[in-house]
């Protein structure tokens, strides 16, 4: 506590800390790496010495389990199952979301018509829909894909709408000066202006889809990472649970990174960064 107060007092112009060059990028990376290493070591110590119970796997055991599971090909099977559902639902849902969002953003009557329904539906947790979906479409792929499709559509639609509303009116007025018709305005002004919002919506919905997918797989599936995580509990295979969790985090991180980098490079002109 005293350290914190000293920190605050020593501060000059901005809220900087007590290590003088902490803002340098190399120091930041160094600290991050240290933090991870220390964290892993702590984990090993806690799990290996302090607790030593099957309920708390050590990093070493987790790595072992990972290698085992990966070598047997089952991990790949789980990953494939999860990613396939995710990608199909996310991409189709995203397309729907773009179309709906543009329609609602550009045509005020459409928006007014759907607005009360949307303002209510957005508060229903997506995962709650897995129950009726499994009743209607069984425990197979369709119910999960539909769930991800639904949640993706929603998020992308909201973001796209936001993008249409954020359009500077001067852009449209300039086009009207040049006697552009309404369809010209839509394709040459509205659509390109909305691109960064659409991409942001797709990115957010991808992260969200991972979360919903895990829950759905726990509830109604016999394959996939969520299934791996939940099912391993019955065998007290906590190392496998951790494998599932970490693979999930890594997959999410990788997908987000790939998507964001690709989009930033290809769509730099449209002001997506």
């Amino acid at each position: 506590m005293a350290v914190l107060f000293r920190t605050l007092r020593r501060e000059r112009q901005t809220l900087s800390g007590w290590l003088p060059n902490v803002s340098a990028p190399t120091t930041a990376v160094g600290l991050a790496v240290c933090s991870v290493v220390v964290g892993l070591a702590l984990w090993q110590v806690l799990a290996g010495w302090a607790m030593r119970s099957p309920l708390f796997p050590t990093p070493a055991e987790t790595v072992h389990a990972f290698v085992r599971h990966a070598a047997s090909g089952k991990l790949l099977g789980d990953v494939n199952a999860s990613m396939a559902r995710l990608l199909i639902g996310w991409s189709v849902g995203g397309l729907w979301g773009i179309a709906l969002g543009l329609a609602m953003g550009a045509f005020r009557p459409v928006r007014y018509y759907f607005e009360p329904a949307i303002q209510f539906l957005r508060f229903i947790p997506g995962i709650a829909w897995i129950t009726p979906f499994t009743v209607w479409w069984g425990v197979g792929e369709l119910s999960k894909v539909m769930l991800i499709l639904y949640t993706s559509t929603f998020i992308v639609m909201l973001n796209t709408m936001m993008g249409v509303f954020a359009l500077p009116p001067a852009r449209i007025r300039a086009a009207r000066c040049f006697e552009a018709g309404p369809f010209d305005i839509f394709f040459h002004v509205t659509l390109p202006s909305t691109v960064p919002f659409i991409v942001t919506g797709l990115r957010i919905s991808m992260g969200n889809s991972f979360m919903i997918l895990v829950a759905a797989e726990m509830l109604a599936s016999d394959r996939g990472l969520g299934f791996l995580i939940f099912n391993s509990r019955s065998y007290l295979a906590t190392d496998l649970i951790f494998v599932g969790i970490i693979t999930l985090g890594a997959l999410g991180l990788a997908s987000d990174f790939v998507f964001h980098s690709l989009a930033a490079r290809l769509l730099r002109r449209y002001r997506y960064r």
């Binding site: 991050a32 933090s35 964290g39 995580i229 969790i245 991180l253």
Partner: peptide, 18 residues
């Protein structure tokens, strides 16, 4: 930083088993 950016993709439900 590293924990936040990794855990960001692990929802609370993933921890349910544990």
């Amino acid at each position: 930083y590293p924990y936040i950016h990794f855990l960001r993709f692990i929802s609370a439900i993933a921890w349910l088993s544990m």
